[in-house]
């Protein structure tokens, strides 16, 4: 397997692991870590696609900016939710009980 292929495969694996963590983790920090792993994996795969082209880096810069913004909003939403007294991920379980 070429270096590009290996980097892409690593990106796919990181993304997959991140999905699992987001849906399984009970703690806020773990969920955010899962999202960060997903983002890192996707961005790694993006760069591995064709690092020699300027467009790749242009997309990387834009994607990093959007991902940081999205994660920041997730943190803000979590803080607002926990300040309101509700806990998102346990809510569904409480209702099922």
């Amino acid at each position: 397997m070429t270096a590009t292929g290996m980097l892409t495969a690593a990106g796919v694996l990181a993304c997959t692991a991140g999905v699992v963590v987001v849906f399984v983790a009970a703690r806020v920090r773990a969920r955010l870590t899962g999202l960060a792993a997903m983002a890192s994996g996707a961005l790694l795969a993006l760069v591995a696609g064709d690092p020699s082209r300027a467009e790749t880096w242009g997309m990387l810069v834009t994607s990093v900016a959007t991902v940081v913004g999205l994660l920041a909003f997730a943190v803000a939403l979590e803080r607002r939710t926990s300040a309101s007294g509700a806990a998102p991920w346990t809510h569904g379980r409480d209702r099922r009980r």
Binding site: T8, C15, L35, L46
Partner: peptide
């Protein structure tokens, strides 16, 4: 939505590479 978007970003990266 975030999980979906990041999954989409991964798919986009795969298309870009190919």
């Amino acid at each position: 939505e975030l999980v979906a978007s990041l999954t989409f970003l991964l798919g986009l990266a795969l298309v870009w590479g190919q």
